[in-house]
Design a protein around this nucleic acid. Structure first.
Lengths: 234, 234
DNA sequence: ATGTTATCAGAACATATGTTCACTGTCAAG
DNA sequence: CTTGACAGTGAACATATGTTCTGATAACAT
């Protein structure tokens, strides 16, 4: 029953196939004995024997001493498999940002606790990481939905989603969310500190800036990172 | 150090996070001891204790007696995890949408050829699939960057990115890109066809609609699906 | 104070699983 | 025929890993 080992034999293929389906159906790689059972190989050593060959041929990668430590690199057709890591890496080119609540002009907007790494699991939005500023600390980001037309002068509509970064100080030129103590109002404006006073500039170029003489009545809640408007399909 | 078990504590989250990253980076679930090492839990029994709770809460599934038999069902944010097979299949939860050019008011906006499945790969933006309408045909989507202030009445700013779907007919209530033949102008408006004429309604509720008596001078270029505004970090 | 519950440590234990070895059979080349 | 490479068996072994048990500790309710 001997045979010159040229390329892959039926058993190699059977094993690769089984590796693939097991990964898909079970979510984790099989053990040597599981492979044996499902490929009519009665001995663990023979399975091991084939696995060594498959590794030498570059089809799999093995972690010695690690249970189920088999990583599929190429499938039976020789096609490159994205291993789970890379597959999910791709999936994780997207960041889940917690949607903490609504912005309503007349009431303070929700601000997360200082450590909100565990947030309400029921709502969040996916954002491709490439849309975010490069070195933004992901865990300082949160999102709010705008209710009402109060942010029109910030060019933000009813229903828009605003992604914010938690901070309580603004640099000049940044768009920030501000709570105005004196008039109980939340607003989104470009922030400028100029010789003693604060200038809040609306995003809409047709509108005029607000000058606040007393900086103490502006409370910076966060910095706007991204605005998203989804047009519902009708 | 006792604490009433309400929802998930920091350790639950730490474990879920670790499960997620391990799956991503290693391609297979961790052992109980690995979890312990990476979450500052010194006892396997304690890890087991938390895993039981996570299973009860529906975050994971465990295979008793199976090494590394932990299947992640929901991540720390409570989001459902696609099982391995699906994860490999749609490795991309993110869609790369070609950025075809700019919208400038005074010139016709770029419209893709009917088959633009092969586009310039160097310019494109990633959009999480979940941000797009559910059954949108991905290959009919393209993006444009808005130049200038001409879209202010559509609540769209200089620099904003507009994701569009190629179409040349609009349904009532959709926001569409329109080329107005008579005045050589591109505009984004809500579209309504009403007894003989076309009403183009600006998104900005403070502005008035345009009534076009002759429907032939409106050319629908595409339907707006998403608007994105990135605030550059200074 | 007392008992209860949630949380944790440490160890012992059982078993799941990778590794290795001695041995057998087949076939082709020398 | 003999030899060696290839294929395979079965078992023993080592260890990686899940499971369980005994106690401790702290917060909380009674």
């Amino acid at each position: 029953m001997a045979r010159k080992a040229k390329g892959l034999g039926p058993r190699h293929h059977k094993i690769l196939k089984f590796l693939e389906t097991t990964l898909q159906e079970q979510g984790l790689p099989p053990t040597i004995r599981e492979i044996g059972d499902n490929t009519q190989i009665s001995s663990t050593s023979v399975v091991n024997y084939y696995l060594e060959q498959l590794e030498a041929e570059g089809y799999i990668e093995r972690r010695s001493g690690v249970s189920r430590g088999i990583i599929l690199l190429k499938n039976a057709a020789g096609k490159l498999i994205e291993d789970f890591g890379r597959a999910v890496d791709n999936a994780v080119q997207t960041v889940l940002i917690p949607l903490l609540g609504n912005i309503v002009a007349g009431e303070p907007m929700p601000v997360p606790a200082s450590d909100f790494s565990y947030y309400d699991p029921e709502s969040g939005i996916d954002i491709a990481r490439s849309l975010l500023p490069a070195h933004e600390a992901e865990d300082q980001l949160y999102a709010l939905r705008v209710h009402g037309d109060s942010m029109i002068d910030a060019m933000i509509n009813d229903g828009d989603i605003v992604v914010m970064k938690k901070t309580n100080q603004a640099k000049n030129g940044e768009m920030v969310a501000i709570w105005l103590n004196d008039r109980d109002e939340t607003t989104l404006k470009y922030f400028y500190r100029e010789n003693g006073h604060v200038r809040l500039q609306p995003a809409n170029p047709t509108m005029d800036a607000i000058i606040i003489e007393d900086p103490r009545i502006v409370e910076v809640q966060g910095k706007v990172v991204l605005v998203i408007r989804q047009l519902s399909e009708n």
